[in-house]
Amino acid sequence: MRIPVRFELNGHAVEVEVAPDRTLLDLLRDTMGETGTKEGCREGECGACTVVVDGRAVNSCLFPAPEIDGTRVLTIEGLSCDHGRLSRVQQAFLDASGTQCGFCTPGMVMTAVAFLAENPAPMDTEIREALTGNLCRCTGYVQIVEAIQLAARRSRDPQA
């Protein structure tokens, strides 16, 4: 059985067919070839697969692919569209050393993007709460929280 789905991926209209037993992660990586979104635990525990659907962070590894019909999806590939220039959150991760091995980074960045859209001036505790579903085994999280604070500050003052 193939289910036709139409959705918006990083600003572009997409029309594909998906199998009922596939997830959004399979659709993004295998069908669309967008491999920036990572597969970690495949159980909703690590957050490496986080993407933003209709403004909300979700675990794409658990998201049934047929349910993507009619939605707007933003992945890590959709952030740095301006001739390879990094988005504000990506640049802040780079500047604050919020990334080491990098495997969790796309999920961390997408969680941060959805979070900052709702809470542009967060406290550190709120950032930590937002990141509870994103595991990082390298950084110890301190630099990641700093990166998200830096992105928040720069959204208010680009010189920060």
Binding site: G44, G47, T50, R56, N59, T111, E129, A130, G133
Partner: peptide, 9 residues
């Protein structure tokens, strides 16, 4: 319950 992403779903 779980994490923000899980609660969104």
């Amino acid at each position: 319950v779980g994490s923000p992403a899980l609660r969104n779903m």
